[in-house]
């Protein structure tokens, strides 16, 4: 018998997830656009029309933040749900749990890329021509992905060990949403807090992505390095946790 090609397993699992998610629903993939779209409308009405937040290109500013945020929030939540949903596989077949986590993340990643593609299509249709610094966007997609993978690898074992971890994570996400500059600009944060505020890698990634996509600027190299440093540290911690917990947490499933 041949050695199992884990990449092939990851690919087939995420493809099966993709089919299962959209099978038999009339709108199919359309649903994954509807969610960010409604989020955009609600936040736009509240913060632009009611609270008079005044930011250049606010619609696109908001939408880009939402798409990046949704990837992180959905991917981390789905990876926890997926491990429980696939418990029967892990309990009966000797495959490493990271395969299941990776397949879930791959699925979220494709949804994110499709959403991002739609974003660029829409801003193009509305006549916003992307700026020259846009060529940097793959770098920020990569950063966000590494961060999301790192966080998932850390929280999935926790969610298996503690059945209520999912609730805690929901609360944490709600908090994180507001301490990330999605609906507002980060320099509204008071000087006393900004040092701590900018330790949030998600905030840094979103700020820097907007800088290159919407405002035709390249962030300071010092800032870019700090962001990369934080993201890589979290990713390494994730790998370490995944390696240490390996199969042992399966017994808690």
């Amino acid at each position: 018998m041949k050695k199992i090609n884990y990449f092939n397993v990851i690919k087939e699992l995420s493809w099966a997830d993709f089919k299962l998610k959209y099978y038999g629903s009339i709108f199919g993939l359309f649903w994954s656009f509807l969610k960010p779209f409604f989020m955009l409308i609600i936040l736009y009405v509240v913060f632009h029309s009611f609270l008079k937040v005044d930011v250049e290109h606010y619609t696109w500013f908001l939408l880009l933040g939402i798409i990046f945020w949704n990837f992180f929030a959905d991917a981390t939540k789905d990876s926890m749900q997926n491990i429980t949903a696939k418990a029967h596989i892990l309990k009966n077949i000797n495959i490493p749990p990271f395969v299941i986590i990776a397949s879930s993340l791959l699925h979220s990643f494709w949804t994110f890329l499709i959403g991002l593609g739609a974003f660029f299509l829409i801003i193009f249709i509305f006549g916003f021509s992307p700026t020259g610094t846009i060529f940097l966007i793959p770098y920020f997609i990569m950063l966000l992905t590494f961060f999301t993978v790192g966080v998932s690898l850390i929280i999935v074992p926790l969610s298996v060990r503690f059945k209520d971890f999912g609730h805690l994570w929901d609360i944490f996400l709600q908090m994180l949403f507001w301490i990330t500059p999605i609906v507002y600009q980060h320099f509204l944060v008071p000087k006393t807090y900004i040092k701590w505020y900018l330790l949030n890698p998600l905030a840094r990634i979103i700020v820097e992505t907007r800088t290159v996509v919407l405002y035709d600027k390249i962030p300071e190299s010092k800032q870019i390095l700090i962001t990369a440093g934080i993201v890589i540290s979290i990713f390494m911690i994730g790998l370490l946790v995944a390696k240490k917990s390996s199969r042992s947490f399966v017994e808690h499933l």
């Binding site: 018998m1 041949k2 199992i4 090609n5 092939n8 087939e12 699992l13 099966a16 077949i93």
Partner: peptide, 11 residues
């Protein structure tokens, strides 16, 4: 396809 991948077979 799915189960086959788990058992180490390509599509």
């Amino acid at each position: 396809y799915l189960y086959g991948a788990i058992l180490g077979m390509s599509r």
